[in-house]
């Protein structure tokens, strides 16, 4: 059995010392991996990432994370990644991780992703340089996700981990006007192309927990304000404890 715990939108601040770690007390008994879907911190500051690292230090469960928009706010992504890696957290920015669990392999392809909207009501790479740059960013992120998913195609279970949502279905509850700022269908197209087994995202605090891509891949919004727990649990099939086998970076 492959057991996955997932949460997003922790929004850890300097006022969060000791707030998240108690929720992880029994994680190692319940899950083989913890996946974090971005907005790990409130302001993206180095000090906040040190607080987060302490909350996650010493876990007996592998942890992988993508950043969210809040984590980019102060421009310290490189340093913040190092802080998380110092406590063993794998940060996936267009990269993948493979965990072996007995005879089975779990592949996780992760990227923050970006916005732009959903099929039929989305932005196009047209007009002003700023608009073209905006949509190009989404296209590049979707392509990075596609390449990372391709790299884990041989795994028994393949998970796409993003911050922004690949579908509208998990945004129900948000104001329609802000949908274009909550994600992009291009992420779903990459997920469907790879026939992933599960897509996890955060970002949408007022959204809903369950949805599905046009290709039938289950999508789960694991933002903590939605799941109301320290993490959501998912399971696939049957087998035991994990070891990190390989990591890599897509070049999209």
């Amino acid at each position: 059995m492959i057991r996955i715990a997932a949460a997003g939108d922790l929004h850890v601040g300097l006022d969060s010392v000791g707030c998240y770690s108690p929720l992880l007390a029994h994680l190692h008994e319940r899950a083989d991996v913890l996946l974090l879907a971005g907005d790990l911190t409130q302001h993206g500051s180095i000090d906040e990432f040190h607080v987060l690292a302490k909350e996650l230090a010493g876990l007996h469960t592998p942890v992988a994370a993508v950043f969210g928009n809040h984590d980019y706010h102060q421009g310290h992504e490189t340093r913040n990644r190092e802080i998380l890696e110092s406590v063993g957290v794998r940060v996936l920015e267009g990269e993948y991780m493979v965990l072996r669990m007995g005879e089975e392999r779990l592949g996780v392809a992760g990227i923050k992703g970006f916005c732009g909207g959903y099929a039929g009501a989305c932005g196009a790479e047209f007009g002003e340089p700023e608009m073209k740059s905006f949509i190009r960013t989404t296209k590049e992120d979707a392509e990075s996700l596609r390449i990372a998913l391709d790299a884990i195609s041989g795994c028994d279970v393949r998970v796409a981990l993003t911050h922004y949502s690949p579908i509208k279905g998990t945004l129900v509850g948000e104001k329609l006007e802000i949908y274009p700022f909550l994600g992009s269908y291009l992420l779903a197209e990459a997920i469907d192309g790879a026939k992933a087994d599960l897509a996890l995202h955060g970002h949408s605090h007022k959204g809903t927990d369950q949805g599905v891509t046009p290709g039938g891949v289950p999508v789960r919004n694991v933002a903590m304000p939605v799941i109301r727990t320290g993490y959501q649990l998912f399971s696939f099939g049957s087998a035991p404890s994990p070891s990190v086998e390989s990591m890599g970076e897509s070049t999209g």
Binding site: A5, L23, P225, R228, T229, G230, Y231, L233, F234, S235
Partner: peptide
């Protein structure tokens, strides 16, 4: 102020 419990029930996906 948000209050969270520890974890959910397990969703079996396959």
């Amino acid at each position: 102020v948000a209050r969270y419990t520890e974890s959910s029930d397990v969703e079996e996906l396959r």
